[in-house]
Design a protein around this nucleic acid. Structure first.
Lengths: 252, 252, 252, 252
DNA sequence: CATGAATGAGACTTCATTCAT
DNA sequence: TATGAATGAAGTCTCATTCAT
């Protein structure tokens, strides 16, 4: 009993040391997002993480390095999952798109680290290498993710062909907008913006301009008629509320 | 005798004095946009405007006041023009929408002051009253502008009815995206984004989801306000195929 | 009377601004010498110069730059004078040597800035470029000065020939020693070292080993016999004390 | 049972413990000499000695104490040897002097710890008690060593009498110079200074000004303690030529 | 009106020192 | 004994702001 003190406590401390960078990054995310890079004092980060000023420098060489770590740490989880999600998905591409946006919002958009994009946009001019890194590792990869979905829709005959890059951006824009809004004007706006409702609406708007029109083969205009088959969607919410969607009808 | 030794003509100085605030604001816009609020030194603003450091304080009580002046000065011109533009326009609403977006990009998006929105988003947390002001004076007014266009489309029988707020935002998002992009990742991205091509594409995508299709009468679903936490959607196709979507499951 | 305020005060301030670097360097010399580079706080330099912390940075980009300025400013005056002194001197080389060492001590050794050599020796490892600069601009030039004197002595038949570099250093060493001593152990030693007495003694010791011995032409050994002519020196001090020196006698 | 789990044999550890201070001091000497007191981080000393930061404090109460230990440990060996060397020596005093300087350079000057004198001179102002200690224990003792040699030379009829303190310093100065040079400008100088050649040269120069010349009986002037401020020297040569020297004038 | 020298609060960063393990 | 994570005082440097001229 008095024997074990020799090793276990060292372990606990080691575990602490291993956890520290993560704790500091977590604390830093919130402050960086809330106040911006310059206005965030390292001392505040430290005390938010429950340590003293000097401790930050045991794990990060400088404020800039901490910032980079914050950015690079908030990338990969959601992307990797998203890519796997696409490959495994078996429903319609419309459903896939809707699912993936919802999921993305839950994982990224609604997470505290979503404000990072705001931060990075604001500071991209002051951290060009970081911006370049983020652009390659996140943005372009994210674009490719979306592009794959669009390609899937075209391959399955659901979507008509359209400029991939532009259409991808048309989907990226509302997501970005959402995050920006959440971390800027949202909190002080009169109307509240319900994220998932907005994303659903956007998808609906976009898709009905994207769905292939087999009859005319037109590239741009005329609404996709959906004559190939009839469909009807019933959405049931947790509180029992039902929404029925389908050709020609919308019933709440 | 005690008058002439020290200065020049009072008139020239008066004219100068009147122009000064404008010159300072102009210089400040560029620097604030390029570097952010904190990283912009007042001395740089002064020398960019061709005056000395102390002179800034003759016209603005503090850095914060200068920043507010910068923001408030870069708002109104385009909005007023936009409102007049709508009233005078006589073509289809689709054409109106496309034209107004193009014009907006020329006037605002492509102007050096477009970066202000980026700045404001970044600093909204540190300047809550400024954010509130901007939200009311610019954002909501801009939203109303878009909403008027949508209403015009509906009134003229071109557009079907849809949630006004959400649809407005769906139009606002790409414009915002464009500005963000231009002042952040754009300069370091591999692909160049052609602004007007993008806006055209977005309008095309959105409009053809908005235009009433006389043949089928299909109507986009208007989802209820998204307050419920759990939800589940079952889509039944004409051939009996079912797709169930929900917060945590996807079943084909 | 109320008229002159327009220009003269500006001049006074300008004169102040011009004088500041010099004032700061002066204050810095004393502190650097007394405490060393690291132990000298810039704030102390500032208050010693009667200004505030920030003012130092109006004139020197960093502590290191201030240090370099201090070093580079305490070089040239004495050297230039020394070189002119040699050319103009018309007495014996022995007298020249004695004079120049005395003068050097008055100008450099005894000045507050003499401690700089101590400082530079201590910090040469941390400021290699500064050491190189000082070595070329001061030390080598100083060596050349001494070498010229030795050459003069040889040319005039007073000194025998000897290795120039080594002999030069043999003269440099006591001067250096003196400065080191003054700024290190001197203040806490039991015996006081009278600088001029020491230098006089050293010159006497060295010269009588340097004077050419016409009779033997020996390069190294045997004392110069001074048989060519008899001589006698009477030194009268300010307090009336007399010392008579000459061949065979020493009388106080 | 509760004894064995944590550590190794007590003997080995004890031996280790005994060696530790020495190892730390050795590591510290090099770093202190190379970087100076302030610029040497205790952590670097620790890792140079192969231990962790905290271990230093098991043997030395503070950085200052470590420094003192470093200084006090690098003194005595050579001095004791030197004293024994004198007593046992049987040749001429000139030979003794030359040999002892050579030996001293081998033992002290050329050892890594020779840089300590540089260090101490630099830091004497910050460590007055250390300087006093060093002055008494090393410098004065060293001076006495030299003085004994001079006395030996006089007693054996080799040297004429001269001011002991000043002559001692005249021998100390080149040794000190050598050490300073080695640890400061030497590494960045263009000419290399061959230590032993220099010492040999210095001894030759000095001795031949010290050796009694039986033929002429010339005696070097022994100046009185240099307390008077003003002085004037008139040298009259056998041929009637006069040279007047003084504090501010040189007249031939 | 305009200047720009001066200020000093405040941020980043270092490192001697402590102490739980 | 030994470790090394943690601390926090202290120093360098920046820059918004003031004010004498």
């Amino acid at each position: 009993m008095n024997d074990q003190g020799c090793g276990s406590s060292a372990k606990r401390r080691a575990r602490r040391k291993q956890a520290r960078p993560q704790e500091l990054v977590s604390a830093a995310v919130d402050l960086f997002v809330a106040r911006g890079y310059s206005a965030t004092r390292l001392e505040d980060v430290a005390s938010a993480a429950g340590v003293s000023k000097g401790t930050v420098y045991l794990y990060f060489a400088s404020k800039e390095e901490l910032f980079k770590a914050v950015v690079q740490q908030s990338l990969l989880p959601a992307l990797a999952e998203g890519e796997a999600f696409i490959d495994a998905f078996e429903g319609t591409t419309e459903a896939l798109l809707r699912q993936i946006l919802m999921r993305w919002w839950e994982l990224v958009g609604d997470s505290p680290s979503s404000g990072l994009i705001k931060l990075l946009i604001a500071e991209s001019g002051n951290f060009p290498d970081l911006a370049r890194y983020y652009n390659v590792e996140v943005i372009e990869r994210c674009d490719r993710l979306i592009a794959r979905i669009l390609a899937r829709g075209v391959a399955q005959g659901e979507f008509r062909e359209a400029d991939v890059d532009l259409t991808t951006l048309a989907l990226t824009a509302p997501m970005l907008f959402q995050m920006m809004w959440k971390h800027s004007f949202g909190p002080c706006a009169n109307k509240v913006l319900e994220p998932k409702a907005f994303l659903t609406h956007v998808v609906a708007l976009l898709l009905h301009g994207l769905l292939r029109n087999p009859a005319t083969g037109t590239v741009l205009p005329v609404l996709p008629p959906f004559t190939a088959q009839r469909w009807e969607t019933v959405t049931v919410f947790g509180d029992g509320q039902k929404v029925v969607e389908g050709m020609d009808k919308v019933t709440a």
